[in-house]
Design a protein around this nucleic acid. Structure first.
Lengths: 214, 214
DNA sequence: GTCTATAGTCCGATAGAC
DNA sequence: GTCTATCGGACTATAGAC
């Protein structure tokens, strides 16, 4: 069930299309990235979502509740997207889980990838208000690392994929840089090579590449 | 200038930073990570550093000034550490700049690495107050990407190293996970293999070379 | 369900003593 | 250089109209 989250982004006061609850969550994540967590006030979120403050507090009885819901939505969307990619990944091959991660992450072109990752503004908002709100994300990460351990790859390869994906997410989250399409594709390709399984029977060229190890 | 002259000779006005200044900067970064940017108040920073609020405002005339200094210190420390690693990297080999990045990043054991990266709390504090405070970091990143382009490696390899390093930093910054020593070492080794030069070529990505990384 | 009005709290920054 | 006292402003959350 693909969640098509084509959404509002910036200042337009009242984009009324989705239910108020979803509008509020998306507006809040965008605000955290663009204006900073300090400006993520109930007034600002309500105004950006085209709702009054009272309306906001009907859906989320406190700011903590709003932030908790933002984190929850972010985590569950990542989980859903990965599950979809995993279902399409051929079974029985080692590294399947990790390659599904790469597929779901690199699926979108840069612009949409950046827009989709704006909801990670939930991280910035949560850690600004109370770092404990990130606990659900920490649980999620622990589960992913356990998956990675049973993925049949050397652990450092799967960890490298995780780290690389999070690094690009870091760039998008802090708006450091949005890599162009071709560089994203090249990184994706390289990571797939690293996380692929060489032909059974072993490669003949194995020792050569390690020549520059310290 | 009879009495003042001695004082000036002993304590030159500019280059010597007051201990209080550094204590304030470090305390602020730690507060941002541990308690959240919301609790990064002038009162809290002053108390954590063992200074009064008035003392803080003497060194940093506004909260913006404090945050700007935090960002500045973080960036300059990264630059210095990389420059030191670069100086020790053998000259003339492609990928030199990138391998220096890996060396400077993976230099410390997990515990100290996490502690050293707590000053990246400056990122959280700055983006919470005003995302524009990150502009110096963006300039810094742009410069690094340009270095990477002239490093003699296929761009995606250097970008992968940058992303992986930032991903681990992301884990430490949000306290998602601190990888153990052996997994850090394995990731470092794998990245060095990827960023080494397999043969004289170094232009195109060869699937054969990537498959030999095992 | 959605809104207005307001109560109560806390923060950043200034002024000025020492 | 370091401190205390304090003011004005902004924010969360409640109460209750419609």
């Amino acid at each position: 069930m693909p969640v098509v989250a084509k959404k509002l982004a910036d200042a337009p006061p009242k984009p009324r299309a989705a239910p108020a609850r979803d509008r509020l969550l998306d507006a809040a994540a965008a605000l955290a990235v663009r204006r900073g967590a300090k400006d993520l006030t109930l007034d600002a979120v309500a105004e950006a979502a085209g709702v009054s403050k009272g309306g906001l507090l009907y859906h989320f009885p406190s700011k903590d509740a709003l932030l908790t819901a933002m984190i929850e939505q972010m985590v569950s969307r990542f989980a859903v997207e990965h599950a979809e990619a995993l279902a399409r990944e051929p079974a029985g091959e080692p590294g399947r889980w990790t390659r599904a991660l790469l597929t779901s992450f690199f699926r979108l072109p840069p612009r949409e990838m950046a827009e989709r990752h704006r909801q990670c503004g939930a991280l910035l908002a949560a850690v600004a208000e109370n770092p404990r709100l990130l606990d659900p994300v920490r649980v999620f990460y622990r589960a992913w690392r356990q998956e990675v351990e049973h993925d049949g790859l050397p652990p450092e390869k799967a960890l490298l994929a995780l780290a690389a994906v999070d690094g690009v997410m870091f760039w998008l989250l802090f708006e450091m840089w949005t890599p162009p399409t071709d560089e994203l594709a090249a990184m994706h390709r390289l990571l797939r090579e690293v996380c692929s399984v060489p032909d059974a029977g072993g490669g003949a060229t194995s020792a050569k590449a390690a020549h520059s190890l310290r």
